[in-house]
Each structure stands twice: as C-alpha cells, then as structure tokens.
Computed example of a mutant assay.
Amino acid sequence: AVQAYNFGKAYIDYVADNGGVNTVELAKAYSKNVVAPSLGNISGETYTYYQPVAMYYGGGKLYTNGGNIYYAKEVQFNLFLMRMFSRL
C-alpha cells in the first residue's frame, strides 16, 4: 500500500498478480514497464537519485517519469529512525 501511494492504486493489483509481495525488483519492473512508458519514457532512460536508501538498494537508479521505486523502503527506514530517536 505504501508503494502504491507513489505509483497509484493499480500497483496493488500488479503486486497481487506477481507474487503478492512488494519488492524493489517488482517496483523496478513496474516503473520501467508501466509507469515510465505511460508518461513518455519509452527508451528506459534512467537518472541517479542520490538518496542513501536508494543508493543502498539499487545504486540510486530511477527511470525518468517512472516514480520512485525506493519509496516504500524510504518510508520503512524513516519509521525505523523515528522509533530509534523516540527512545532517546
């Protein structure tokens, strides 16, 4: 559901039809094959997204016009940080 906030609700059906679990690899495929082409990126053009979570999980590569494939991981990491700092 968190990744669908970034990609749109059709991503929920895509996940259900492709194993039922959101992964970075699944988000990458959806970004490349569904989102990016629908917004004009038919060549698979990428750019580097210099964000620590993105760099860790995939070298920071995102498809132009393809949304953020790392969005759910970024939210997960931010929740972890909030929990850690709330204990201080």
Score class of each variant (00 low, 15 high):
Y14L: 02
A16R: 15
L81M: 10
E25M: 12
N41F: 09
I12N: 02
Y47H: 12
I69F: 01
S38E: 14
F85K: 11
A4V: 01
E45H: 11
G44T: 02
F80E: 09
Y11V: 06
F80N: 08
K32T: 06
N22W: 03
A4Q: 01
Y50G: 02
G58S: 08
P37H: 05
V53S: 00
V35S: 03
G60S: 10
K28D: 15
T48K: 12
L88W: 11
N6Q: 10
N65Q: 12
I69N: 04
E25D: 15
E74G: 06
V53D: 05
F85R: 13
L39D: 09
G59S: 06
A29F: 05
Y57D: 02
M82R: 15
Y30D: 02
Y50A: 08
Y47T: 11
T48I: 11
A72C: 11
A72S: 11
Y70F: 08
Y14M: 00
A10Y: 11
N41M: 12
L62Y: 03
A10L: 14
Y56W: 13
A54N: 01
F77K: 05
F80Y: 15
P52R: 03
Y30K: 04
S43D: 11
D17Q: 13
Y63N: 02
Y56S: 09
T46P: 03
V34Y: 01
Y14K: 01
F77G: 01
T46K: 10
Y47M: 12
M84K: 14
A29G: 06
R87W: 07
S43F: 10
K9A: 10
T64E: 15
G8Y: 06
G44P: 04
Q51F: 08
K61G: 07
G44E: 06
V75I: 12
T46R: 07
K61I: 02
Y47Q: 13
L62A: 05
F80G: 09
V53I: 08
V53E: 00
N41P: 08
L62T: 01
Y50S: 14
V21L: 10
N78H: 09
Y50C: 06
L62C: 04
Y70W: 03
N65F: 09
A1W: 10
A27P: 03
K28W: 11
N41Y: 10
L39Q: 14
G40F: 07
D17S: 14
F80M: 14
E25H: 13
L88K: 12
N68F: 04
V53T: 00
L26W: 00
E45T: 12
L26N: 00
Y70V: 00
V2I: 15
A1D: 11
G8H: 03
Y30R: 02
Y47I: 06
I42F: 13
L79K: 13
M55Y: 05
E25Q: 14
K73C: 07
L79A: 14
L88Q: 15
G58P: 00
E25R: 12
K9T: 13
V75S: 07
I69S: 02
N78Y: 10
G19S: 05
L62W: 04
S38G: 15
N68W: 04
G60H: 03
N65P: 01
A4C: 05
R83L: 15
A16N: 12
M82K: 12
S31I: 03
N6R: 05
S86F: 12
N65W: 04
A54V: 05
G66D: 04
E74N: 09
Y56E: 11
V34A: 07
E74T: 04
Y49S: 06
K61D: 09
